[in-house]
Design a protein around this nucleic acid. Structure first.
Lengths: 202, 202
DNA sequence: CTCCATTTTAACCATATGGTTAAAAAAAAC
DNA sequence: GTTTTTTTTAACCATATGGTTAAAATGGAG
C-alpha cells in the first residue's frame, strides 16, 4: 500500500507539471492541481506542504531537462559538425516529450529573476563552455569553418532548437495551420543541424 | 488640465506594461501598478475599469509590436536576401526598444490559448505569407538558393531574431556574463542575416 | 477481523486582492 | 473667486485562495 502512496504522489507531480507549465506559479491553483490529480486539496497538502515547495520541485525538474542537453553538448568530445548534430537531436528529443518546458522556464525566470541563481550552479555547463568555444575557434583557424564568434554560433543553435517549442501555438497558427506540428518539429532536428552546418562550413 | 489626465493615463500604461510583462496577468497586482504609476488604486480604477481591460490594452499593443515586423516582411517586395536583412533589422530595432514583448506575448498566449484568436485577425500577415513562400520557392527554382521549405526558412529567421530576447536572462548568464547584452544584441541583426544567407545561398 | 496507512469530508481561518464608494482636497480653468 | 476636473483619503465589501484541522471512512495486509 506504499504503492498507492507513491502513485498518488506521482499523480500530483504529473498534474502539477501540467498546471504550472500552463498557468505559471501565480496563475496555478492548488485546487485545480488536486482536481487534475484526482484527489482533494487536503491530501495534496498532506504530501506537499505548500505551493512553493511543489512548484520548486517541478521547476527544478524542468530546469534540468532544459539544461542537460546543453551540458552534454558542452562536454561532448565529438568533431564539431557531429557535435552540432548531436545537440540538435538531443534537444529535439527532450522537447518533443516535454514541449512545455522552454516556455515554463523562460517565463518563471523572467517573473522572478532571483531564480537565475539556480542556473549558475548547474552542473558542468560553464566548464564545458570554454572547451567548446576553444573547439570552435580552432575550427576557424584550421579553415574548417568560416570566421564566427563561438557564442553567436551556440546562440543560433539553441535559438532554432528551442524557440519553435516556446512559441508553439504562434508557430502553428502562423506557418503550419493545417499540419501536425509534432511531426514537423520531429523532422526538424536534422534540418536545423544542416542549416547551421551549411552556414558555417567552408 | 486634460493634459494632466492624459499624462496620468500614460503613466498608468507605462507602469502596466512593465508590471504585466514581468509578472503576467495573474501575477500582476493593481496596487503595484498604481504605485509604479505614482498614483493610488482608486485613481487607477477611475481611468481603467478593471484589470482585464487594462491588460487587454497592454497586450494588444504588445501583439502589434511583435507582429508588425512579420507583416512588413511578408509584404516586402524586395529581393529575397535584402528582405531577410530587412526583417532581421526590423525585429532587432523593435525588440531593443521593447525587449520584454516576446516573453510577454508567448507566455500569455500559452496561459490562455483562446488569445490565439487575436493573432488570426492580425492584418496582412497571412496574405503576405503566400507571396513570400512563393518568392522563396522561385528563388530555389532559379538556382539562387539551395532547396529549402519556405516555412523552415521563415521559422529560422524569427527564431534567431526573437529567442535571444525571450530568453534574455538565461542567455546573459550562459554566454555573455561579462558583456553588455544590449550591445551584443544590437550588433546581432546583421550577423543573423548573414548567417541565414550563408546557409541558403548557392 | 484487526491494524495501519491512505484518503475523504467538511468546516474553518487568515490573508490578499480586485473593486467600490463617498467625501474631501488639490489644482487648474474660467 | 467660483466652477470643474483631477486626485487623494480611507474605509469598506465580496471573493478567491492557500493552508489547516480533526474526525470519519476506506481499503489492503497480516
Amino acid at each position: 500500500m506504499e504503492k498507492k502512496s507513491v502513485e498518488t504522489q506521482e499523480n500530483i507531480l504529473i498534474a502539477a507539471r501540467a498546471i504550472f507549465a500552463q498557468k505559471g506559479l501565480a496563475g496555478a491553483r492548488m485546487q485545480e492541481i488536486a482536481d487534475t490529480a484526482g484527489i482533494n486539496k487536503a491530501l495534496l497538502h498532506y504530501y506537499y506542504k505548500n505551493k512553493g515547495k511543489l512548484f520548486e520541485q517541478v521547476f527544478d525538474e524542468a530546469l534540468k531537462k532544459l539544461f542537460r542537453p546543453m551540458a552534454v553538448f558542452m562536454a561532448d568530445d565529438s568533431e564539431l559538425f557531429q557535435k552540432i548534430r548531436n545537440i540538435c537531436k538531443h534537444y529535439n528529443e527532450v522537447l518533443i516529450d516535454y514541449p512545455f518546458i522552454p516556455n515554463f522556464v523562460i517565463n518563471e525566470i523572467n517573473s522572478d529573476p532571483t531564480r537565475i541563481l539556480k542556473l549558475l550552479d548547474f552542473e558542468g555547463v560553464l566548464e564545458g563552455k570554454k572547451k567548446t568555444e576553444f573547439q570552435i575557434n580552432e575550427a576557424v583557424k584550421a579553415g574548417l569553418i568560416r570566421s564566427i564568434d563561438p557564442r553567436e554560433l551556440i546562440l543560433n543553435v539553441i535559438s532554432m532548437s528551442i524557440f519553435p517549442f516556446a512559441a508553439r501555438p504562434i508557430i502553428k497558427e502562423l506557418l503550419y495551420e493545417n499540419e501536425d506540428l509534432n511531426k514537423v518539429l520531429q523532422a526538424r532536428a536534422d534540418q536545423v543541424a544542416d542549416f547551421i552546418i551549411q552556414s558555417i562550413k567552408l
